[in-house]
């Protein structure tokens, strides 16, 4: 029991070390990767466009649920007018960054991992190395940057549509006063709150993109290996996102 725990701990430390070295190799190739704006633009488009539709749909529904639940809760204290600020704070600081990151990991992250894993399985990465092209420069770094840029943007979109969803339920359906709704929101959401959401979006973007490219790159070169890489991408991204979320919140509050 003690030994298995010790082994797990050692494995975890070794895993973090490997990922850190992997990140260093990406940083080493960042300058030359940044010289290829076309490659990066297409990866931002890839990662962003892949997740855009589900981000929008989920943003709308999360906002609408927040409208219903928030109204129900606030009504008990007779403060329905605070719906705008309560829902906006929840979306900007927590739900937006976290749910967007989870959706991103499930949609774009798995696509990245399986794409790179398949390149590994079909010798494409080795072929690049033999052609003296570092796969980190041509494959890994552009995809990593694409994810890092895309997730904060997706987070903002998620938040905006989420607030629209709250408004749709709260104001249009349940009859909260339109003016109060917006002015309450504007009065209580500070720049720091938005910053916190943005920082979370950026940190989750780095974490989820890194996990996806790492799992894909180190996948075993078989169909099973690629499958395992995509699964690990979703699971690890979700766990790391929630842990990081707690840590950032604890530091920033």
């Amino acid at each position: 029991m003690y030994n298995t725990f010790k082994q797990m701990l050692l494995d975890a430390v070794a895993g973090f070390g490997a990922v850190a070295l992997f990140l260093l190799r990406i940083f080493g190739q960042l300058p030359s990767a940044l010289l290829r704006p076309r490659l990066i633009a297409s990866q931002i488009h890839n990662a962003g466009a892949l997740s855009l539709v589900i981000i929008m749909i989920c943003g709308l529904f999360v906002g609408m649920v927040l409208g219903l639940q928030g109204y129900d809760m606030l009504e008990r204290f007779g403060s329905e007018s605070a719906l705008g600020s309560a829902a906006a704070l929840a979306l900007v600081k927590e739900l937006g960054p976290v749910v967007a990151a989870l959706l991103f990991a499930g949609r774009a992250g798995t696509a990245l991992a399986s794409e790179i894993g398949l390149m590994r399985a079909t010798d494409q990465l080795v072929a690049m190395e033999i052609m003296a092209v570092d796969p980190f420069r041509y494959v890994v770094a552009p995809r990593f940057i694409g994810g890092v840029v895309a997730l904060p943007l997706l987070t903002m979109i998620f938040i905006a549509i989420g607030i629209f969803g709250v408004q749709l339920i709260g104001v249009q359906q349940l009859g909260v006063d339109q003016g109060t709704f917006w002015s309450q929101m504007r009065g209580s959401v500070e720049v720091e709150d938005v910053m916190q959401g943005l920082i979370k979006g950026c940190v989750f973007g780095v974490a989820c993109s890194l996990i996806a490219v790492y799992e894909g790159y180190t996948a075993a070169p078989t169909a099973e290996g690629v499958g395992r890489a995509t699964t690990r991408t979703v699971v690890n991204s979700a766990v790391i996102t929630l842990i990081l979320d707690y840590m950032i919140t604890a530091v920033m509050l």
């Binding site: 079909t122 494409q124 072929a127 033999i130 092209v133």
Partner: peptide, 29 residues
């Protein structure tokens, strides 16, 4: 390696590039 060309047992073409771009790849890089 820049002075070595290798033909892989299974080809190992880059699947996201066309035939033309695959052949052009080492030149462009």
């Amino acid at each position: 390696r820049q002075r070595i060309g290798m033909l892989f047992q299974n080809g190992a073409l880059l699947t996201d590039l066309s035939v033309f771009e695959n052949v052009a790849f080492p030149v462009r890089e």
